[in-house]
Design a protein around this nucleic acid. Structure first.
Length: 267
DNA sequence: ATGTCTACTTTAAGTAGA
């Protein structure tokens, strides 16, 4: 079962590019981030015509996540649990950044957690504090799911550069929320719970990026960072067969600033 | 030093977010 993650930076602007990539890559499941659309305006029927079941969690203008699956989706939940000062299960989280669903493979059911972690810039601002609180909530959710001892994965745009090797010029990110010790520490804490970072489990090479800024000719200079990740539960990591980044998508017409990353699971 | 893109409104030029 091929499961992909792709921050598309706006479904309206990205529909042709996303359609071309989907047609070629043929993932069984794909999670999108930054759909930047309310649920009613998401081109659901377009993707249904391509054979996908579609579940969205959108909002106006910003953020927004979705899960598309060729297999049936079960037990869909929207919002990361534990939103502050609100009701249960993140129903009142004002930022649409998280969705979960279960996909049935031929041999295993896999819980898919699609996330768009807050950027957190500028450091020192309330936005950075929100990022760290959000990561604490994610860790809490990971612990809940780990207790079930079932295959699950948490994937998406983490907005975290794990190590210096994950940037062409790590020194340029020293003061950025994506490379702060607190952000990176929270990402390591997730892994230390027993989650496997799929890409690094299979590839230790430098210059393996998933994002190149639109500004300053970052793509032309390969001035990228690796911030889109798959974290796998132990039962899911046992099924891991491959993890790749579809880098070439960044060089196409009207690209997103991110490219797809995917895992192949023996599920 | 600067360089971009997207969505939206204030609707064609400015703002916010990344």
């Amino acid at each position: 079962m091929k499961i992909a993650s792709y921050n598309i930076n706006g479904i309206k602007a990205r529909l042709p590019a996303v359609t071309d990539w989907l047609t070629e890559a043929q993932p069984d499941v794909v999670i999108f981030q930054e759909i930047k659309s309310v649920d009613e305006n998401f081109p659901r029927e377009h993707f249904e015509d391509m054979g996908y079941n579609v579940e969205t969690h959108g909002q106006k203008s910003f953020n927004g996540v979705a899960i598309l699956s060729k297999r049936p989706l079960e037990d869909v939940t929207r919002g990361l649990p534990g939103a502050e000062g609100t009701g249960r299960d993140g129903e009142d989280d004002e930022q649409a950044r998280y969705i979960e669903a279960t996909v049935l493979g031929d041999r295993n059911a896999v819980r898919i957690c699609g996330l768009y972690l807050p950027n957190g810039n500028p450091v020192g601002d309330e936005k950075f504090a929100y990022k760290l609180r959000w990561m604490e909530r994610l860790e809490k959710r990971a612990k809940e799911l780990l207790a079930l001892e079932q295959p699950f994965l948490m994937a998406g745009d983490y907005n975290v550069i794990p190590q210096g090797i994950d940037a062409l010029h790590p020194e340029n990110w020293r003061d950025d929320a994506l490379f702060q010790p607190e952000s990176r520490g929270a990402f390591w804490r997730l892994q230390n719970l027993g989650l496997t970072e799929a890409f690094r489990a299979r590839n230790q090479a430098a210059e393996q990026f998933t994002f190149w800024d639109f500004q300053r000719g970052a793509w032309q200079r390969n001035d990228g960072i690796r911030i889109d990740h798959f974290l796998l539960s132990p039962q899911c990591a046992d099924l891991l067969e491959d993890c790749q980044i579809d880098k070439e998508v960044r060089g196409r017409d009207k690209p997103s600033d991110h490219v797809p990353i995917w895992v192949e699971l023996a599920a």
